[in-house]
Design a protein around this nucleic acid. Structure first.
Lengths: 121, 121
DNA sequence: ACAATAACCGAAAAAAGATTCGGTAGGGAT
DNA sequence: ATCCCTACCGAATCTTTTTTCGGTTATTGT
Protein backbone atom coordinates (compact mmCIF):
# COMPACT_ATOMS: atom_id res chain seq x y z
CA UNK A 1 0.00 0.00 0.00
CA UNK A 2 1.14 3.50 -0.72
CA UNK A 3 2.44 5.89 1.87
CA UNK A 4 1.64 9.49 1.16
CA UNK A 5 4.10 12.30 1.59
CA UNK A 6 1.44 14.98 1.77
CA UNK A 7 -0.78 14.81 4.83
CA UNK A 8 -4.41 13.95 4.12
CA UNK A 9 -7.38 15.40 5.91
CA UNK A 10 -9.66 12.62 7.12
CA UNK A 11 -11.95 15.05 8.92
CA UNK A 12 -13.58 15.72 5.58
CA UNK A 13 -16.15 13.00 4.92
CA UNK A 14 -15.63 13.12 1.19
CA UNK A 15 -11.91 12.45 1.61
CA UNK A 16 -12.67 9.46 3.82
CA UNK A 17 -15.03 8.12 1.17
CA UNK A 18 -12.44 8.70 -1.54
CA UNK A 19 -9.87 6.82 0.50
CA UNK A 20 -12.10 3.77 0.90
CA UNK A 21 -13.70 3.47 -2.52
CA UNK A 22 -12.01 6.16 -4.61
CA UNK A 23 -9.52 4.09 -6.60
CA UNK A 24 -9.89 3.69 -10.33
CA UNK A 25 -11.35 0.19 -10.11
CA UNK A 26 -12.69 -0.11 -6.57
CA UNK A 27 -16.23 0.83 -7.49
CA UNK A 28 -16.22 -1.78 -10.26
CA UNK A 29 -14.87 -4.40 -7.89
CA UNK A 30 -17.55 -3.66 -5.29
CA UNK A 31 -20.14 -3.85 -8.04
CA UNK A 32 -18.77 -7.17 -9.28
CA UNK A 33 -18.76 -8.71 -5.81
CA UNK A 34 -22.27 -7.44 -5.28
CA UNK A 35 -23.30 -9.26 -8.46
CA UNK A 36 -21.91 -12.50 -7.09
CA UNK A 37 -18.59 -12.46 -8.89
CA UNK A 38 -16.38 -13.00 -5.89
CA UNK A 39 -13.23 -14.83 -6.82
CA UNK A 40 -10.21 -12.72 -7.85
CA UNK A 41 -9.73 -14.51 -11.15
CA UNK A 42 -13.41 -14.10 -12.03
CA UNK A 43 -13.33 -10.42 -11.15
CA UNK A 44 -10.33 -10.12 -13.44
CA UNK A 45 -12.25 -11.72 -16.28
CA UNK A 46 -15.24 -9.50 -15.55
CA UNK A 47 -13.26 -6.24 -15.51
CA UNK A 48 -11.17 -6.88 -18.59
CA UNK A 49 -9.68 -3.38 -18.73
CA UNK A 50 -7.89 -3.68 -15.41
CA UNK A 51 -4.76 -5.72 -14.89
CA UNK A 52 -4.75 -8.62 -12.46
CA UNK A 53 -2.24 -6.78 -10.31
CA UNK A 54 -4.37 -3.72 -9.75
CA UNK A 55 -7.33 -5.89 -8.83
CA UNK A 56 -5.23 -7.67 -6.21
CA UNK A 57 -4.03 -4.38 -4.82
CA UNK A 58 -7.43 -2.81 -4.68
CA UNK A 59 -8.95 -5.94 -3.18
CA UNK A 60 -6.26 -5.73 -0.50
CA UNK A 61 -7.20 -2.13 0.27
CA UNK A 62 -10.92 -2.82 0.34
CA UNK A 63 -10.15 -5.71 2.67
CA UNK A 64 -7.91 -3.59 4.86
CA UNK A 65 -10.54 -0.91 5.29
CA UNK A 66 -13.20 -3.51 5.98
CA UNK A 67 -15.43 -3.06 2.95
CA UNK A 68 -15.01 -6.71 1.97
CA UNK A 69 -14.03 -9.91 3.75
CA UNK A 70 -12.08 -12.90 2.59
CA UNK A 71 -13.44 -16.39 3.07
CA UNK A 72 -12.94 -19.91 1.82
CA UNK A 73 -15.30 -20.74 -1.03
CA UNK A 74 -18.05 -23.33 -0.75
CA UNK A 75 -17.47 -25.60 -3.74
CA UNK A 76 -15.01 -28.42 -4.23
CA UNK A 77 -11.79 -26.66 -5.07
CA UNK A 78 -11.69 -24.46 -1.98
CA UNK A 79 -10.66 -21.09 -3.34
CA UNK A 80 -10.60 -17.57 -2.03
CA UNK A 81 -13.85 -15.67 -2.17
CA UNK A 82 -14.54 -12.10 -1.23
CA UNK A 83 -17.85 -10.87 0.12
CA UNK A 84 -19.20 -7.47 0.99
CA UNK A 85 -19.29 -6.61 4.66
CA UNK A 86 -22.06 -4.38 6.05
CA UNK A 87 -19.65 -1.48 5.53
CA UNK A 88 -19.22 -2.47 1.90
CA UNK A 89 -22.95 -2.81 1.44
CA UNK A 90 -23.47 0.66 2.85
CA UNK A 91 -21.43 2.00 -0.08
CA UNK A 92 -23.71 0.51 -2.74
CA UNK A 93 -26.42 3.19 -2.63
CA UNK A 94 -23.77 5.86 -3.21
CA UNK A 95 -22.37 3.99 -6.18
CA UNK A 96 -25.87 3.59 -7.57
CA UNK A 97 -26.52 7.31 -7.20
CA UNK A 98 -23.23 8.23 -8.85
CA UNK A 99 -23.86 5.80 -11.67
CA UNK A 100 -27.34 7.20 -12.24
CA UNK A 101 -26.01 10.75 -12.28
CA UNK A 102 -23.22 9.87 -14.67
CA UNK A 103 -25.42 7.93 -17.06
CA UNK A 104 -28.05 10.65 -17.20
CA UNK A 105 -25.41 13.19 -18.21
CA UNK A 106 -23.05 10.98 -20.16
CA UNK A 107 -24.11 12.14 -23.62
CA UNK A 108 -23.53 15.78 -22.69
CA UNK A 109 -20.17 15.04 -21.09
CA UNK A 110 -19.06 12.85 -23.98
CA UNK A 111 -19.92 15.66 -26.38
CA UNK A 112 -17.80 18.13 -24.39
CA UNK A 113 -15.01 15.57 -24.31
CA UNK A 114 -15.10 15.24 -28.09
CA UNK A 115 -14.87 19.02 -28.47
CA UNK A 116 -11.83 19.00 -26.23
CA UNK A 117 -10.13 16.30 -28.24
CA UNK A 118 -10.82 17.98 -31.57
CA UNK A 119 -9.54 21.30 -30.27
CA UNK A 120 -6.29 19.75 -29.14
CA UNK A 121 -5.26 18.35 -32.53
CA UNK B 1 -6.35 20.50 -19.21
CA UNK B 2 -4.70 17.12 -19.30
CA UNK B 3 -5.01 14.76 -22.22
CA UNK B 4 -5.03 11.10 -21.29
CA UNK B 5 -3.01 8.48 -23.09
CA UNK B 6 -5.15 5.58 -21.98
CA UNK B 7 -8.68 5.55 -23.36
CA UNK B 8 -11.38 6.15 -20.78
CA UNK B 9 -14.76 4.48 -20.71
CA UNK B 10 -17.49 7.08 -20.43
CA UNK B 11 -20.23 4.49 -20.77
CA UNK B 12 -19.79 3.79 -17.09
CA UNK B 13 -21.75 6.36 -15.10
CA UNK B 14 -19.31 6.34 -12.24
CA UNK B 15 -16.44 7.21 -14.57
CA UNK B 16 -18.45 10.11 -15.97
CA UNK B 17 -19.09 11.36 -12.45
CA UNK B 18 -15.41 10.99 -11.55
CA UNK B 19 -14.46 12.98 -14.62
CA UNK B 20 -16.74 15.89 -13.74
CA UNK B 21 -16.28 16.17 -9.97
CA UNK B 22 -13.56 13.67 -9.15
CA UNK B 23 -10.55 15.95 -8.77
CA UNK B 24 -8.88 16.42 -5.44
CA UNK B 25 -10.46 19.82 -4.80
CA UNK B 26 -13.50 19.92 -7.07
CA UNK B 27 -15.91 18.81 -4.36
CA UNK B 28 -14.58 21.49 -2.02
CA UNK B 29 -14.90 24.12 -4.73
CA UNK B 30 -18.48 23.14 -5.48
CA UNK B 31 -19.21 23.25 -1.77
CA UNK B 32 -17.61 26.68 -1.43
CA UNK B 33 -19.56 28.12 -4.34
CA UNK B 34 -22.72 26.60 -2.93
CA UNK B 35 -22.01 28.45 0.33
CA UNK B 36 -21.79 31.74 -1.54
CA UNK B 37 -18.02 31.95 -1.79
CA UNK B 38 -17.80 32.57 -5.49
CA UNK B 39 -14.77 34.62 -6.38
CA UNK B 40 -11.53 32.73 -7.14
CA UNK B 41 -9.49 34.65 -4.59
CA UNK B 42 -12.09 34.02 -1.89
CA UNK B 43 -12.24 30.32 -2.73
CA UNK B 44 -8.47 30.27 -2.41
CA UNK B 45 -8.67 31.83 1.04
CA UNK B 46 -11.41 29.38 1.99
CA UNK B 47 -9.58 26.25 0.85
CA UNK B 48 -6.21 27.10 2.34
CA UNK B 49 -4.65 23.71 1.61
CA UNK B 50 -4.94 24.07 -2.15
CA UNK B 51 -2.70 26.30 -4.23
CA UNK B 52 -4.20 29.13 -6.27
CA UNK B 53 -3.13 27.37 -9.44
CA UNK B 54 -4.98 24.17 -8.80
CA UNK B 55 -8.12 26.10 -7.94
CA UNK B 56 -7.90 27.93 -11.26
CA UNK B 57 -7.41 24.69 -13.11
CA UNK B 58 -10.23 22.91 -11.42
CA UNK B 59 -12.54 25.91 -11.84
CA UNK B 60 -11.69 25.79 -15.54
CA UNK B 61 -12.65 22.12 -15.73
CA UNK B 62 -15.87 22.56 -13.79
CA UNK B 63 -16.66 25.44 -16.13
CA UNK B 64 -15.80 23.41 -19.20
CA UNK B 65 -18.07 20.55 -18.20
CA UNK B 66 -20.85 22.97 -17.32
CA UNK B 67 -21.07 22.47 -13.57
CA UNK B 68 -20.44 26.15 -12.92
CA UNK B 69 -20.78 29.36 -14.92
CA UNK B 70 -18.72 32.50 -14.95
CA UNK B 71 -20.36 35.87 -14.60
CA UNK B 72 -19.48 39.46 -13.79
CA UNK B 73 -19.95 40.27 -10.13
CA UNK B 74 -22.55 42.73 -8.85
CA UNK B 75 -20.53 45.13 -6.68
CA UNK B 76 -18.39 48.09 -7.62
CA UNK B 77 -15.11 46.55 -8.67
CA UNK B 78 -16.63 44.22 -11.28
CA UNK B 79 -14.89 40.95 -10.62
CA UNK B 80 -15.30 37.39 -11.79
CA UNK B 81 -17.84 35.30 -9.97
CA UNK B 82 -18.67 31.65 -10.42
CA UNK B 83 -22.11 30.18 -9.80
CA UNK B 84 -23.50 26.67 -9.85
CA UNK B 85 -25.49 25.73 -12.92
CA UNK B 86 -28.41 23.30 -12.63
CA UNK B 87 -25.92 20.56 -13.52
CA UNK B 88 -23.67 21.67 -10.67
CA UNK B 89 -26.59 21.78 -8.27
CA UNK B 90 -27.55 18.25 -9.22
CA UNK B 91 -24.18 17.11 -7.88
CA UNK B 92 -24.75 18.52 -4.39
CA UNK B 93 -26.94 15.66 -3.07
CA UNK B 94 -24.25 13.16 -4.06
CA UNK B 95 -21.57 15.17 -2.26
CA UNK B 96 -23.81 15.38 0.80
CA UNK B 97 -24.34 11.63 0.76
CA UNK B 98 -20.63 10.91 0.38
CA UNK B 99 -19.80 13.35 3.15
CA UNK B 100 -22.34 11.76 5.47
CA UNK B 101 -20.99 8.28 4.73
CA UNK B 102 -17.41 9.39 5.26
CA UNK B 103 -18.10 11.21 8.50
CA UNK B 104 -20.07 8.35 9.96
CA UNK B 105 -17.16 5.98 9.37
CA UNK B 106 -14.26 8.37 9.81
CA UNK B 107 -13.24 7.20 13.27
CA UNK B 108 -13.03 3.60 12.10
CA UNK B 109 -11.09 4.52 8.98
CA UNK B 110 -8.74 6.82 10.87
CA UNK B 111 -8.01 4.00 13.29
CA UNK B 112 -7.14 1.64 10.44
CA UNK B 113 -4.99 4.35 8.93
CA UNK B 114 -3.08 4.76 12.18
CA UNK B 115 -2.42 1.01 12.29
CA UNK B 116 -1.05 1.20 8.78
CA UNK B 117 1.28 4.05 9.65
CA UNK B 118 2.56 2.38 12.78
CA UNK B 119 3.21 -0.86 10.92
CA UNK B 120 5.26 0.92 8.29
CA UNK B 121 7.78 2.47 10.68
C1' DA C 1 5.13 -36.44 -12.69
C1' DC C 2 3.60 -32.46 -15.31
C1' DA C 3 1.11 -28.69 -17.18
C1' DA C 4 -2.34 -25.35 -15.96
C1' DT C 5 -4.62 -22.31 -13.01
C1' DA C 6 -5.17 -19.55 -8.91
C1' DA C 7 -3.60 -16.22 -5.57
C1' DC C 8 -0.41 -13.27 -4.47
C1' DC C 9 3.78 -10.13 -4.23
C1' DG C 10 8.01 -6.69 -5.27
C1' DA C 11 9.95 -3.52 -8.12
C1' DA C 12 10.44 -0.70 -12.16
C1' DA C 13 8.25 2.09 -15.40
C1' DA C 14 4.60 4.82 -17.16
C1' DA C 15 0.79 7.75 -16.70
C1' DA C 16 -2.10 10.88 -14.30
C1' DG C 17 -2.67 14.46 -11.32
C1' DA C 18 -1.13 18.23 -8.15
C1' DT C 19 2.12 21.78 -6.82
C1' DT C 20 5.46 25.30 -7.40
C1' DC C 21 7.40 28.98 -9.87
C1' DG C 22 7.64 32.66 -12.77
C1' DG C 23 5.32 35.12 -15.55
C1' DT C 24 1.15 38.62 -18.10
C1' DA C 25 -2.49 42.04 -17.99
C1' DG C 26 -5.90 44.96 -15.98
C1' DG C 27 -8.03 47.79 -12.38
C1' DG C 28 -7.76 50.45 -7.93
C1' DA C 29 -5.63 52.88 -4.44
C1' DT C 30 -1.86 56.18 -2.68
C1' DA D 1 3.98 56.83 -11.32
C1' DT D 2 4.00 53.10 -8.36
C1' DC D 3 2.28 49.46 -5.73
C1' DC D 4 -0.97 45.98 -4.72
C1' DC D 5 -4.59 42.84 -5.77
C1' DT D 6 -7.12 40.00 -8.96
C1' DA D 7 -7.51 36.63 -12.60
C1' DC D 8 -5.13 34.03 -15.45
C1' DC D 9 -1.63 30.95 -17.87
C1' DG D 10 2.73 27.76 -19.32
C1' DA D 11 6.12 24.86 -17.97
C1' DA D 12 8.95 22.27 -14.85
C1' DT D 13 8.77 19.40 -11.02
C1' DC D 14 7.03 16.33 -7.73
C1' DT D 15 3.66 13.08 -5.83
C1' DT D 16 0.36 9.64 -6.41
C1' DT D 17 -1.70 6.01 -8.86
C1' DT D 18 -1.80 2.54 -12.30
C1' DT D 19 0.38 -0.70 -15.25
C1' DT D 20 3.68 -4.01 -16.69
C1' DC D 21 6.76 -7.63 -15.80
C1' DG D 22 8.83 -11.28 -13.65
C1' DG D 23 8.52 -13.93 -10.14
C1' DT D 24 6.68 -17.62 -5.74
C1' DT D 25 3.69 -20.99 -3.69
C1' DA D 26 -0.12 -24.02 -3.63
C1' DT D 27 -3.66 -26.73 -5.76
C1' DT D 28 -5.91 -29.26 -9.49
C1' DG D 29 -6.60 -31.94 -13.66
C1' DT D 30 -4.37 -35.25 -16.84
Amino acid sequence: MYTKKIEEDLDCGIRVAAKVFGGKWKCCILDAINRGINRPADIGRYITDASARVIEMQLAELLFFGAIEKCAGEGFPKRTEYRLTPLGESILPILAQMDRWGLSHSEFIKERQRELENAEV
